[in-house]
């Protein structure tokens, strides 16, 4: 029982990463009907930008001789990195996807894969093959609740993730851009005729998705402080699975499926030998998709594309 509760705590943290990344896949899909396969690598870039900002801020504080508290550096790092990474997303949309908007979807998907490789190898060329270790900005404090151990970092990670998701929810439900994004996800033909410019809405969507991926990258660095250029691949693919499982284009579905994926993985590793983790976890998901091919909140989409 104790282990069960302990695993729930771990699954919440693990699921947070998937959920934050999956949201980016889903948002872009809902308005452009394409999966941005470079999204996992945007997560990686976000983590590296976070690394740069955090070390920069720490160096600055040391130089000025100011005793800047770690949590302040962490919060600033998250905000600045989200802002900067969103421009990476905007740039990718402008250069990679916009010229292919009328092209077959397969070409756009391939573009995503290529952009991903460029980001990975670009990073490799720029920073070399050595792994970087993410600065530990706050000291780990472990609380014991009953017989369950919770660290302050875990609480922080889950709390930040949930707040960002809530913020996104408000944005989607309450603002005109959110309204346009929702409309696009049901039918994109009528939306431009309401005076909505897709060339403004698409970059905004990429920016938000990339910002969330950057937040995920920094939170990930906080929990697993080793960065390497290929860290976004597997995590990106798994978050993509979550986006599909949640239902293509469904924001709520992506978040829930992200957490579900976290739970399945953590519990698979608990019950079975840990080398079996992904084998078991993804067999379960395959089974779910067999019975629910549109995912949890998916809908049959019209397949023609005109913007």
């Amino acid at each position: 029982m104790d282990l069960f509760l302990q695993n729930i705590v771990n699954a919440l943290q693990w699921g947070s990463f998937y959920a934050l990344i999956a949201l980016g896949y889903s948002m872009v899909y809902s308005i452009l009907m394409l999966f941005n396969f470079a999204h996992g690598d945007i997560f990686m870039v976000g983590a590296y930008i976070g690394f740069g900002i955090a070390t920069g801020l720490l160096a600055l504080a040391a130089m000025a001789g100011l005793p800047v508290p770690g949590w302040l550096v962490l919060v600033l790092t998250i905000i600045i990195s989200m802002f900067l990474t969103s421009f990476v997303g905007i740039f990718i949309e402008r250069v990679g996807y916009r010229p292919l908007r009328e092209a077959p979807r397969a070409s756009a998907a391939i573009t995503g894969l290529m952009i991903g490789i460029i980001l990975e190898t670009g990073n490799l060329a720029l920073l070399g093959a050595r792994r970087l270790s993410f600065p530990s900005l706050i000291d780990t404090v472990t609380f014991q609740i009953g017989s369950v151990y919770v660290t302050n970092k875990k609480i922080f990670i889950v709390a930040v993730s949930l707040s960002l998701m809530f913020g996104l929810h408000l944005f989607i439900q309450k603002t005109k851009w959110g309204m346009a994004m929702r409309a696009m996800s049901y039918d994109f033909q009528a939306v431009p005729l309401m005076g909505v410019s897709i060339n403004k809405l698409a970059p905004l969507t990429f920016a938000i998705g990339s910002g969330l991926a950057a937040a995920a990258g920094i939170l990930y660095g906080l929990a697993y402080p080793v960065l390497d250029p290929y860290m976004g691949i597997l995590l990106g693919w798994k978050a993509f699975v979550a986006a599909i499982l949640g239902g293509r284009g469904s924001i709520l579905g992506a978040a829930l499926a992200g957490f579900l994926l976290g739970f399945i993985e953590i519990f698979a590793a608990w019950i079975f030998p840990s080398t079996f983790r992904d084998l078991i976890a993804y067999s379960i998901i395959l089974l779910i998709l067999t019975f629910r091919p549109h995912g949890f909140f998916g809908q049959a989409h019209s397949t023609q594309l005109r913007l």
Partner: peptide, 28 residues
């Protein structure tokens, strides 16, 4: 029709006023 299935009725009409809604990201 091309309506947006899971949006409510008033939102359909508000959506068409998109470019008349004059506020920026920071306002929101």
């Amino acid at each position: 029709l091309l309506l947006w299935r899971h949006m409510n009725v008033v939102e359909h009409v508000k959506m068409a006023c998109y470019s008349q809604l004059e506020y920026g990201l920071l306002d929101a």
